[in-house]
């Protein structure tokens, strides 16, 4: 009976998507970029006139990150990202609250594995370095604060799996606090300097250089630290119970 209902509901929904929704969206690949705001965002000309952007040549554009997705995420629609950070933040707090409400406060223990422990010593610094690389180069290459922070948290997870005594200390919470507040403070600094919340108030430099794009790398670094600390807390909450 349940299955019949399920097929019915899914069928009605699919019928709606294919019959009603598919005709109104453009066919795959035939997108008119000119009609979308993305066109001006790619050319970094939402406030100025249109000029083709060239890698390593264009200077002092309104937004300096070579990765256009990053320039949308952390510059044009930075406010969304602030919300996104808050979603993750709330989810982490929720996991903390719910894990502390569990009745069986038993820590998950296991026998250590020597091979894993020794190889963790070799791999862990590389993992942390790679995570930091991802979020520092977020405005130049694919990546950014969220993947970078996740990579760092995975390093912490590896440490936790290889080492029975390892505990995430309160430092993670302080990191989370200062990184989260740092993001908002950067926004408020934009308000103090340029009069608008979350304004990019630093010079944007040459497209493709490490020191470019104004506040974007700084914000991504904050996000990286915050996400790393947050996910480490989640992992630790789930383990400690």
């Amino acid at each position: 009976m349940r299955r019949v209902w399920a097929i019915l509901v899914a069928g009605v929904f699919l019928y709606f998507l294919v019959g009603q929704f598919l005709p109104i969206i453009p066919t795959f690949g035939n997108v008119d970029l000119f009609a979308r705001v993305a066109f001006d965002i790619i050319n970094k000309s939402t406030t100025t006139n249109y000029n083709a952007v060239e890698f390593k040549k264009s200077k002092d554009l309104e937004d300096g990150s070579a990765n256009v997705v990053t320039s949308i995420v952390v510059n044009y629609r930075s406010f969304d990202t602030l919300g996104e950070v808050s979603v993750l933040f709330c989810a982490a707090i929720g996991v903390g609250i719910l894990a502390s409400m569990l009745k069986s406060k038993k820590r998950i223990e296991f026998e250590e594995h020597k091979v894993l422990r020794i190889s963790t010593g070799i791999v862990l610094p590389l993992i942390l370095l790679f995570g930091a690389y991802i979020f520092i180069h977020g405005h130049l290459s694919p990546g950014g604060g969220f993947p970078g922070g996740t990579t760092i948290a995975l390093g912490v997870l590896l440490l936790m799996l290889s080492n029975n005594e390892f505990k995430v200390t309160n430092v993670a919470k302080y990191v989370e606090q200062s990184a989260g507040a740092g993001y908002v403070v950067i926004g408020l600094m934009g308000m103090a300097i340029g009069g608008v919340f979350l304004m990019n108030f630093l010079p944007t430099g040459v497209v493709g250089n490490l020191f470019s794009a104004g506040v974007v790398p700084i914000v991504y670094t904050f996000i990286g630290f915050k996400v790393g600390a947050e996910l480490s807390n989640v992992i630790s909450d789930l383990r400690e119970g």
């Binding site: 594995h113 091979v115 894993l116 190889s119 070799i122 791999v123 590389l126």
Partner: peptide
């Protein structure tokens, strides 16, 4: 080098 470092350990674990 990285694969040599990680893959056998993962399999062993």
């Amino acid at each position: 080098a990285f694969v040599a470092l990680t893959n056998p350990v993962a399999a062993s674990v």
